[in-house]
């Protein structure tokens, strides 16, 4: 199948040496469209492709059948043997030229309009709600893997890959940005879908600020930066299954979020704080976030207008 893939997809450019391996932009010679090729090398033993890989890719395929507008299309999957110990799984995604990072960089001062931010956020949360209701978490949500088409359509990319890649990651000393990581991940506690909501909160703030909210240089530094904004959580909220003690951090009171995100309106600030909640169980879910007055506000406004 290797040659079939390389015949059907003609590499055009390397578009990123992501944490998980190189990503290529390629042209689908059948349709003429551009695709993004992401390859994962999975270790294979005498029993073939690992069960986790088979199940995860099958799950991505199944998600694909639902054709969600805010999730990037997975067009093809292929497995090729590289050696006796390794199989290369190539995932063929639709290619979108622009991610949220470049989108924000290209936006001239004074930045995105409040309506535009609201629209992007709604689409982002719709995509997340879809993934979460299918028990898929992204785990590595950041502006680089939120794609924005030229029509302003948001498409989540790279979800679910964290699990497919995980065995590979264990072998590679990868540098992954900490800026969008929630406290529970930084503290190496258990985590679930709320991780993505924390990241979404960071991105929400960044849309206003046009620069990241928390730019830590290490796990502890990142946590420190977080507590400077949301305050040091009470002892009872500190997870019990972690090695890092709460005593390592100086007691800080929460500061008004508008000190850091100046242009945000009142409902937006309230939603942002619900996303940047320390306790993952108290953090708002994607679906409840969509029901928040921050979004309903605009609906009623447009209704009265029309």
């Amino acid at each position: 199948m290797a040659h079939v893939t390389s015949i059907q997809y003609e590499p055009v450019a390397e578009i990123g040496g992501g944490a998980y391996g190189t990503v290529y932009k390629a042209r689908d010679t059948e349709s003429g469209k551009f695709v993004a090729l992401k390859s994962v090398r999975v270790p294979t033993d005498q029993n073939g492709l690992p069960v986790s890989t088979v199940r995860e890719v099958a799950l991505l395929r199944r998600l694909e059948q639902f054709d969600h507008p805010n999730v990037v299309r997975l067009m093809d999957v292929c497995a090729t043997q590289r050696s006796n110990q390794e199989t290369k799984v190539t995932l063929v995604f639709e290619h979108v030229d622009q991610d949220l990072k470049t989108y924000l960089e290209r936006t001239p001062a004074p930045g995105l309009s409040p309506d535009c931010i609201k629209d992007l956020m709604r689409q982002l949360l719709c995509g997340l709600a879809f993934l979460h209701s299918n028990r898929v978490m992204h785990r590595d949500l950041k502006p680089e893997n939120i794609l924005v088409t030229s029509q302003g359509q948001v498409k989540l990319a790279d979800f679910g890959l964290a699990r497919i890649y995980s065995c590979h990651m264990a072998l590679t000393p990868v540098v992954v940005t900490l800026w969008y990581r929630p406290p529970e991940v930084l503290l190496q506690s258990t985590y679930a879908t709320p991780v993505d909501i924390w990241s979404t909160g960071c991105i929400f703030a960044e849309m206003f600020r046009r620069k990241p909210l928390f730019c830590g240089e290490s796990e502890v530094d990142q946590l420190g930066k977080i507590f400077e904004v949301i305050g040091l959580p009470p002892e009872e909220e500190w997870p019990t299954d972690v090695t890092l003690s709460r005593k390592n951090f100086s007691p800080l009171m929460p500061r008004p979020i508008t000190d850091f995100v100046a242009e945000i309106n009142e409902q937006g600030a309230e939603l942002l704080l619900k996303m940047l909640t320390f306790d993952p169980l108290k953090r708002i879910s994607a679906l409840n976030a969509l029901e928040h007055s921050y979004f309903q506000d605009e609906e009623t406004l447009t209704q009265t207008k029309s």
Binding site: S133, M137, Y191, A192, L281, A286, L287, N288
Partner: peptide, 11 residues
């Protein structure tokens, strides 16, 4: 992923 996933109260 399966274990502690928080159930969405409403979809």
């Amino acid at each position: 992923r399966v274990a502690p996933v928080k159930k969405e109260p409403e979809r």
